[in-house]
């Protein structure tokens, strides 16, 4: 399953002016579950340093899960209402989040920008 161009996404994210500001000092890991598959994104000092399939024992500061069809809608250039933003999708659609509340809310602006860039590099 390939939902977005990972290499282009990582490069664009680390060059993005808004992400650099919103994600300053970000150290930690974000795990995204796309149905049965998962992706672990590791950040160091505000940069995305790696993306990999997590092992059984990898933990993350924030975990976000959603059905595959929901991720596909979420990553469309102009998604349907309530798929347009992760907070909206958690409140109104079938996405779930868990983990460290402080990290999630402190860096929501960075994650929001990250998802927009992921959307920009989505494969439809």
């Amino acid at each position: 399953m390939t939902l977005f161009n990972a290499q282009a996404f990582q490069s664009a994210l680390n060059e993005d002016g808004e992400f650099k500001i919103a994600g300053r000092f970000l150290d930690g890991a974000l795990k995204l579950h796309f149905a049965d598959e998962a992706l672990l994104l590791k950040f160091r000092d505000g940069q995305l340093v790696s993306m990999s399939t997590p092992s059984l024992f990898d933990t993350a500061d924030v975990v976000i899960k959603g059905p595959l069809s929901s991720w596909q809608e979420f990553l469309k250039p102009v998604p349907r209402p309530f798929f347009h933003d992760m907070f909206a999708a958690i409140v109104r659609q079938q996405f779930e989040w868990s983990g460290n509340s402080e990290t999630f809310f402190a860096y929501y602006g960075a994650f929001r920008r990250m998802f927009q860039i992921m959307r920009d590099h989505a494969i439809h």
Binding site: A22, H84, D85, M86, F87, A88, E102, F105, A106, Y108, G109, R112
Partner: peptide
């Protein structure tokens, strides 16, 4: 106190 004023505008963006 542990969440700055940046969090509010960030979540408002999605509205």
């Amino acid at each position: 106190p542990r969440i700055s004023n940046e969090a509010k505008p960030a979540t408002m963006y999605g509205l």
